[in-house]
Design a protein around this nucleic acid. Structure first.
Lengths: 236, 236
DNA sequence: ACGAATATCTATCAGATGATAGTATTCTTG
DNA sequence: CAAGAATACTATCATCTGATAGATATTCGT
């Protein structure tokens, strides 16, 4: 694997160098991306094949190379697309939380925003059928770091954990960057994620047939309860 | 993938049908298994190759087929080995918890045992260098169910979640099988697992270079705090 | 010690897979 | 409306991968 990069002959984005017209090309590119998002969500990078993707997208194999430079470029493009969609869905809650962190120092305000942020995350994860695949994509890349790890870490994990940790620190009344607050942030986020990436276990354990609105409500209620205990837990 | 099983020509365990003597064979088998455990822990089923494994084990390729019937059989054998080792490490705590559930109905007793069970799980995950790979194996198989899913679900997930959920139900004073208790059990376990399967994010976020005894102590302390809040959280 | 069961190797196959070469078609723009 | 850029295809390669065939060496009970 990972043969020594034999001189990058072509940039990942072989296209879009010139006039940037030609809307038909953009449509095809988009269609391939959508199919790839699904494919890489379903199975691992290695297990997904460019042939299947090109077939499902209704184009020939070299078209993938043409638009994305190769399998790896396509994978990267998928990561960027996921980041993009995630941002659109959670930007509002994150921005409000950041604003509140600057303006209002009250612990209870932070608690409200923390619930909103986690709620937005969970809503994103359960909000669409595709999100399941995206969650798998992200979880897989986190576990087996590949070409998309940095993209996802910088744009998803870092800001997400950072905001969460700051809110928790505020609730706990400890300085920002406090290790205990960061650990709690990780615990909380991984709990939320588990309901999508650990989907199969959840379904079996809860004897659910799907994770939809009702199920999400139960999960959110449990997460909210957990958030409510932050700063109120005094061992014994 | 998953081509229609073309009539099982040879059983998974091609060996051990007759006298079961020949200790040299058993040694080889064990060596291959150990290498495979590492390999399947490092990368996905698809990405791991039987060639690499056989090389690392110092045997020729057909030897894998001889002992395990093929790649899939080897994978299954790995799952069984993980189950076996997990059991050895956590059986004591699980047995004590089960006993306590029958004999002592006090919530606080259940709380103590819950901490012990989660502690044993976390200890197993951080206890050895290999456990990291095992955690990845299990997490991967949970995410992308393959030939080992049932083995792992029945022997790891189900008993683990079940015990945890029963203890939590006892603490909450609700009947066994209560959905809220089960959700909390899933939240708790996934939190604990995240510290090994989500290792890379944890290391970066916490600015740790490794997850050893000291780090485990911090995580356990956070988990214990979380367990302490169960049954004491009254929203607002 | 001898023969059957066991263990292990070399050589090779068939299929899948990512990628490239070379060519035809279509669209935009001067 | 040409001309050139952009789009997209067919055919083909080189490599990797899991698996098998068939031969050879090793071990152990009698």
């Amino acid at each position: 694997m990972a043969k020594t990069p034999p001189a990058p002959l072509k940039p990942a984005k072989a296209r879009s160098t010139a006039t940037a017209g030609y809307r038909k090309g953009e449509e095809t590119r988009q269609r391939i991306l959508e199919v790839a998002l699904k494919a890489f969500g379903d199975v691992s990078y290695k297990a997904a094949t460019t042939r299947r993707i090109s077939e499902a997208a209704g184009v020939s194999l070299p078209t993938l190379q043409y638009y994305f430079g190769g399998k790896e470029g396509l994978y990267r493009a998928c990561a960027e697309a996921i980041v993009d969609r995630y941002r659109r869905r959670t930007a509002a809650a994150a921005a409000k939380a950041a604003e509140a962190l600057n303006e209002d120092r009250a612990a209870e305000t932070a608690r409200v925003h923390l619930k909103a942020v986690i709620g937005a995350l969970a809503g994103f994860l359960v909000g669409s059928r595709e999100a399941e695949g995206w969650a798998q994509f992200v979880a897989r890349e986190l576990r087996d770091p590949g070409p998309a790890f940095e993209i996802l870490y910088e744009n998803l994990w870092r800001p997400g954990v950072s905001t969460t940790a700051r809110l928790i620190a505020r609730i706990l009344g400890v300085p920002e960057g406090d290790p205990a607050a960061r650990i709690r942030a990780l615990l909380l986020i991984s709990s939320a994620l588990a309901f999508q990436s650990g989907r199969r276990i959840v379904l079996r354990t809860m004897r659910w047939s799907t994770i939809g609105g009702d199920e999400l409500a139960m999960v959110l209620s449990a997460l909210d309860a957990q958030i409510d205990t932050i700063g109120r837990d005094h061992a014994r």
